[in-house]
Amino acid sequence: MTGLLCTEPRAVLILGTGYLGKALAESLRKAGHTALTADIDAQKAIYEADVTEGASMHSLAARIRSPHIIVMCASTRGGSEEAYRSLYIRGTQNTLEAFPGTPVIFCSSTSVYGITDGRWITEEHNVYPASGKSGLLIQAEQAVLAAGGTVVRLGALYGPDRCVLVSQYCKKGAALPGNMDRWINYIHRDDAVAALHLLCTLREPPTGIYNLTDRTPMQLGEIYSYLSG
């Protein structure tokens, strides 16, 4: 594996410094790489930038040296369909136009598969978007793939100070709608960071689609039973 990794420090531009992006930046810096962070909130990152605004992204490109790779991990935090369109469709287009030729890793979601009957899913499976939001994610994915980039489909994140299932269960006694037999894909934030760190530091920029989830899926009823205990 070490022969597949770059031997020189990398400059990685991370767009979005939320729960995932902040931890990825810390991981890269600890390994001696340069993590250039950009966020709409100037206090959360080195650079202030709004991926939904083309002028803002071109301004960002003018302020920094060309990064080796870009990671798009900004989130709408459960926003509306229009928020998805703005962040993922326009944001992806603006990023690709502002940084032409720079490899892009786009953080997407396993929800795009739209398959909830317990079947094992691989990257080769077709997608069946169950909502307009999933459809918009797929459009953004296609733009990144057409540009020779990488799509990372993540399960729901949990980890230090964050687990939606636990917090909502404690508040309401229920966390997600649906059948207790429903299968759920999750991934620990630190595992997601480790995978993204690896993709960022490969000698050859990665391409294609990668699924990132915990190895053992769980059913909703199983999780509730554990929490109740």
Rank of each mutant, 00 (worst) to 15 (best):
E123D: 12
Y210N: 00
R182W: 06
T110G: 11
W183S: 10
V193L: 04
A147L: 01
L196N: 09
R153F: 02
L196F: 08
P103S: 09
E97Q: 12
L212C: 12
G149Y: 08
G159N: 11
V127G: 02
C107P: 04
E123V: 05
I115Y: 01
T213E: 08
I187T: 01
E124V: 14
V164K: 14
F106H: 12
I105V: 06
P205H: 09
Y210C: 09
V193Q: 06
H197T: 12
I105L: 10
G114M: 02
V104M: 09
L157Y: 04
K133A: 07
V151P: 03
R162Y: 03
D214W: 04
T102C: 10
G208A: 08
P177H: 11
R182Q: 13
A156H: 07
Y186H: 15
L165G: 00
S108F: 04
H197F: 14
C107F: 04
A192Y: 06
Y169T: 15
T116L: 08
I209G: 03
M180A: 14
E97N: 11
Q142N: 13
D161G: 06
T110E: 04
N185T: 13
Q168R: 15
T150A: 05
T201M: 11
G155W: 07
L198F: 01
N179F: 05
W120M: 15
Y158V: 08
K133N: 05
S111K: 02
A194N: 03
V193W: 10
V127Y: 02
N126D: 13
P160A: 08
D190H: 12
C200W: 01
C163D: 14
L199Q: 10
A147V: 14
C200Y: 01
R215M: 01
A156T: 09
T150H: 07
R119Y: 04
Y158H: 03
G159L: 01
L196Q: 05
N126E: 15
C200F: 00
I121K: 02
A195I: 14
G173C: 03
L157W: 01
S134C: 15
G173K: 13
A147K: 02
P103K: 12
I121D: 12
D214Q: 07
R203W: 12
V104A: 03
I121N: 11
L145T: 09
P205G: 03
